[in-house]
């Protein structure tokens, strides 16, 4: 029952975009709108960049705390910053 609470760094990831998932998400959020072709790909790109920034930020947070492991708090702190940055609706 010694379940490791840490997730090791991934060496391989799928580069394939979950296009169906993205379309579904958008459709569920905004059923009255339609997403043009390749819009989901841009969503995927945007999401990738968001995750990238979030990871970088949380990584720096963890390093600042001299933690070898990214903890929940680090992600939380990073999310606060990055979510605000990635918000376009309310400028400045």
């Amino acid at each position: 029952m010694v379940l490791s609470t840490t997730v090791s760094q991934r060496k391989h990831i799928k580069r394939k975009a979950p296009r169906g998932f993205l379309k579904r998400v958008f459709k569920r959020q905004k059923p009255h709108l339609r997403l043009e072709t390749s819009g989901d790909l841009l969503m995927h790109l945007n999401c990738l960049l968001f995750v990238h920034r979030l990871a970088e930020e949380s990584r720096t947070n963890a390093c600042e705390n001299k933690c070898g492991i990214i903890k929940k708090e680090h992600v939380l702190a990073a999310a606060k910053v990055i979510l605000k940055k990635s918000r376009a609706s309310e400028p400045s």
Binding site: V7, R10, I13, H52, H74
Partner: peptide, 14 residues
């Protein structure tokens, strides 16, 4: 993907 970009081990809670 986050785990990949983080380049660090991370908690499951994270």
């Amino acid at each position: 993907l986050f785990g990949f970009y983080a380049k660090m081990p991370m908690e499951k809670k994270a």
